[in-house]
Structures are given as C-alpha cells and as structure tokens.
C-alpha cells in the first residue's frame, strides 16, 4: 500500500488524528492537495526539515485554510486541471472557532473543496484549552473544575448543523470507531463537486486523559451511548447512518476519561437528559 502519511510523525502514542488522516488519504489517493490548518496535525507531521506527507501539502494559518483551499482549487481549475482534489484537514479549534468565518465563506461560495475536521474537542496542541467544540462538563485548563464550575459550563457548538445551514451538497459526521462508515463517507464525498464537509470524532489521549489503548474503544462508545450521532445531509436530505439498538449509559463513556472525573451523578444525569432530548427530536 502506498504511504500518503508516513510513520515517524510525532503524534502522541494512541492519538486518534493520524488514524483519521491515514484512512482518509488511503481512500482519496495521491491526486490530492492537502491544506492543513494550524493544529496538532501540522506540528506532528511537518517539523522542518522533515515531513510525514506523501502528497502535496500546504500549511495554512489557523484562520484561513478555507481561503487557501479555495485559491488552490481555483488555480487548478483555471489551468484546466479538473481532477485534482483539494482537501482540508483541520482540528476543531480552527473549524469551530478561529477559522470559522473564512470556512463559512468557502461554504457560501460552494468552492470545490472537501473539508475534514478531526474533532478532539479542545485546543490540544497548546495543552488543552476549551474550544467551541469542548463538551459540557469537560475540564480543560481554561474551563477547570473547582468549587464553582464543573468544567465547561456550555454545550458543544452544533457545527455540522451550522455548516449544513449553508446548503452545501454534502455534510456528514463520522467517528474513527466506525471506520467503514467514515471511509464510505470520504469515498462518497470524494467524487462530489462543490463544498463538502466531514466531521470526525478523534479522541485525544492527553487532553481527554485516558489509557492510550482505548482510543478506538472510546470513539465507538461515543456513538453507542448516543452522544455522537452519525449522519449525512446530502443535498439537504438528512439521513441517520446508525441508530444504536440499545443505548449504553453516557456514564460508561464519561467515566473512562479523567476530563470528566469531577462530574457528580446529577451532572451526568443532566448530560444524559440533554442527549435523550436530542434523540427524541430526531424523527
């Protein structure tokens, strides 16, 4: 198998992000240009003078990967190249927060870009600061758990829904715990035209604070508890990819991670109820 993302990258042991990138690139093949917003991925893959990439790679700032990708694809098309895919890999920090304005512009113009966000639910590269993606109750260095607050006091930003509101051809959520589902979504998005967005849950060993062998187990559990919904919105049509036969209690997922260890039974109940309500609203 050809290597588009090589060994020797310096992600932490057990990191979910290189698993995401490796599988996405295996599906996309070599005829791609990768644009990578500032993130863990950039740091671990491109420390000069070495590179883990086996495909053309552009590092952008936190805030402008959407614009760089739009420019790259415009340049390709004006040169008569209508086959090379431009794909963005970005973390939740740049997607939910810092690069959101520029991403929104890319979506509104419907630029021919596949945008893949690997979501590890905080600014992990700088040592775990809360982002718009950090879930309710998670302790980070900027949303610490103490006497007054129990970690982050706000709910996670519903980014996939916000992106779907731009009426782009394809929006999907995925998890590396359900790899075949993630790969099939990348395969589908690959051959579509216009702006496409895939949000993938990619657990972070150091930020979520769990044993490094449990990355895939957690990514699966997030789906099986119902906390992370798998769906696609294709041309405005919503389709659930998976409805767990029997939901596992959210506590199973929360108690495996030290970022949630301070939560009381009552707070866990609040999370469970919030999730039950989200599923009840689904038809």
């Amino acid at each position: 198998m050809e290597e588009y993302f090589a060994s020797g990258h310096t992600a932490c042991a057990g990191c979910g992000m290189p698993i995401t990138v490796r599988h996405a690139l295996n599906v996309l093949g070599k005829d791609v240009i990768v644009v990578n917003a500032t993130s863990c991925l950039e740091i671990v893959s491109s420390a000069y003078p070495r590179s883990a990439w086996g495909v053309p790679y552009i590092h952008s700032l936190f805030e402008n990967s959407g614009a760089i990708a739009a420019g790259a694809v415009a340049s390709l098309r004006v040169q008569g190249n209508d086959h090379t895919k431009v794909v963005v890999f970005a973390g939740d920090g740049s997607t939910y927060d810092i690069g959101f304005g520029v991403l929104s512009g890319m979506l509104e113009r419907n630029d021919d870009v596949l945008y893949i966000c690997y979501d590890n639910e905080a600014y992990m590269n700088t040592g775990n600061q809360r982002s718009g993606s950090t879930p309710f109750g998670a302790a980070t260095t900027t949303s610490p758990a103490g006497k007054v607050n129990h970690g982050k006091m706000q709910w996670k930003k519903p980014i996939a829904e916000i992106i779907a509101a731009h009426q782009i051809p394809y929006v999907a959520t995925a998890s590396i715990g359900y790899m075949a589902d993630f790969e099939s979504k990348v395969r589908k998005a690959k051959d579509m035209k216009g702006a496409r967005f895939i949000l993938t849950l990619a657990p972070c060993v150091t930020g979520w604070n769990y044993d490094s062998s449990k990355t895939i187990e957690l990514a699966k559990l997030a789906v099986d508890t119902g906390l992370w919904m798998l769906y696609e919105i294709e041309d405005g049509k919503f389709k659930l990819s998976l409805r767990p036969q029997q939901f596992k209690p959210v506590a199973d997922y929360l108690k495996m991670q030290a970022r949630f260890k301070h939560l009381s039974e009552e707070q866990i109940k609040t999370i469970q109820e919030h999730m039950n309500k989200a599923w009840a609203e689904m038809k």
Binding site: E3, A6, S7, G8, Y48, S51, A52, G54, V55
Partner: peptide, 16 residues
C-alpha cells in the same frame, strides 16, 4: 527550504 516527502521516517519513534 522544503522538506522531502516521508522524511519523517528518519524519526525513529520506537524509542518512546
């Protein structure tokens, strides 16, 4: 100053 493809393989991360 451009890094060559897959040169990360020089990092023998096995010693971690």
């Amino acid at each position: 100053a451009i890094a060559n493809p897959r040169t990360s393989k020089e990092n023998k991360t096995g010693d971690w």
